[in-house]
Write a protein that binds this DNA or RNA. Structure first.
Lengths: 243, 243
DNA sequence: CGTGTTATGTACGTTGCCGTGCATAGCGTA
DNA sequence: TACGCTATGCACGGCAACGTACATAACACG
């Protein structure tokens, strides 16, 4: 299912500059890493890391984005974070843990660049800008996870759906998101019917329209007016730390 | 009840070895840091960091423990993590963010050792065991926050109260916790009455007894049987990363 | 010993979400 | 064109937690 892209754009690693962490590197560091970057093609639903599995690579998404999920013993799931072109998947490798007790799954198909754990660690240990960027990104991710914790506790399904749609829209190049209510329900940790109901209301208000696995963002401004504060907090903190 | 210890134990910084991160340092590194460690006495409810405020110190709790909280615009709050002798408060300083959008508040009074940001950073940048320990701890904290996110979504007030009591009990030297239902409600992000109801049920089952701001853990084993899986996951991950 | 304050108990209607079961309607494919 | 599959719609009872309002009981302090 995963194919290595052979196109000229990515063959020399330049496409990797679409990842904002890699793009922010000093050219000296980037040149060191460039030969280690390998473009791969993620398809929807693909599992990047299984919970507890030993990680071999870190992934720098460009056009793809990846969901960090936790699965309970009874099989119910909930999302704790979302990683796109601003970030990296596999922080446990440089944080020193080697594994994490959660799963990473492709939520928007596209390209990511992967790098072998050892190559990443060698550069990380130099203690330069690469390390600095990865740690700042990790802090932004912590904010995102924290906010998810609080949002899950205090806000309604409808608000959380707005937040999730906006976050996903930010990571997508199009106004059309390809996902079913069922899929979203696993992300939000609610019943499928709960998503359907909330989506209906958003559709009635003209914010979105949807049909069999396709959701179109019609009025982003109205969504922003409807979402809980959590969206802004995470967004602002990302800007503060990464821009 | 807790006074600043003036005895030989803390005067030379040895009391700091009650913090497990500091205790795990090679003696060479610890000797470098020892002069920078300053014991302080935290009292209940004291605010260690305000949300967004510039941080001057990192804190290594020994007998105290600190709650990481987020406050919504409407004033409602919820806890995202809990730091005791196994950890450090102020990770944003070495992660490179300088501030965090949340508050840190003393939840169990006692001693902590603080260190100026600059001294901590100097040692961190050496890239040795100190850095390694702090990053591994940060990963354990991420797991804790993630699990809180999921737990908030999927489990009942009663289960979450069990989890919170067990976690707090782990960080406390006594079976008697000094806190009101009101206080706990702010941690769990629920109404005070919700805590009272859940506590009543736990008391009826003989797990705890309580009275006006004092909660006694009577049957830890039964609490463990009653709590959701989240407690174990966080506990195990802490052991894996920090023991 | 009385008084104010704080912690806990109780009650009642409301609501958001759950669990379940089944109905309909697009869409792909034969 | 008919069929089957999958995505969405709908309906019902149930429950946990909410918001609100007020009652009691322990303790602190004069």
């Amino acid at each position: 299912m995963v194919q290595t892209t052979k196109g000229n754009e990515t063959a020399n690693g330049d496409g990797a500059l679409s990842n904002r962490l890699l793009a922010a590197l000093p050219s000296e560091a980037f040149e060191r890493l460039r030969p280690e970057l390998e473009p791969i093609n993620f398809s929807l639903g693909e599992v990047v890391y299984e919970s507890g599995a030993h990680m071999q690579y870190v992934y720098f998404p460009t056009t793809s984005h990846i969901s960090l999920l936790y699965t309970m013993l009874d099989g119910s799931t909930a999302e704790m974070g979302l990683v796109g072109q601003e970030g990296v998947v596999g922080i446990a490798l440089f944080m020193g843990g080697e594994t994490t007790p959660n799963r990473a799954m492709v939520q928007g198909r596209g390209i990511a660049f992967r790098m072998k754990a050892k190559a990443m660690l060698d550069e990380f240990k130099r203690g330069g800008e690469f390390q600095h960027l990865l740690l700042r990104y990790t802090q932004a991710l912590i904010t995102q996870i924290s906010q998810t914790a609080v949002c899950n506790r205090l806000h309604s399904v409808e608000q959380r759906l707005c937040r999730w749609l906006l976050m996903t829209h930010d990571l997508t190049q199009s106004d059309e998101l390809q996902m079913t209510h069922e899929f979203i329900s696993h992300m939000l940790g609610v019943r499928r019917e709960g998503v359907t109901m909330a989506a209906q209301r958003l559709q009635e208000m003209g914010m979105i329209s949807y049909m069999r696995g396709h959701i179109r963002i019609l009025d982003r401004k109205q969504l922003l007016a409807h979402v809980c504060e959590c969206y802004r907090v995470v967004k602002d903190e990302h800007s503060r730390l990464l821009d």
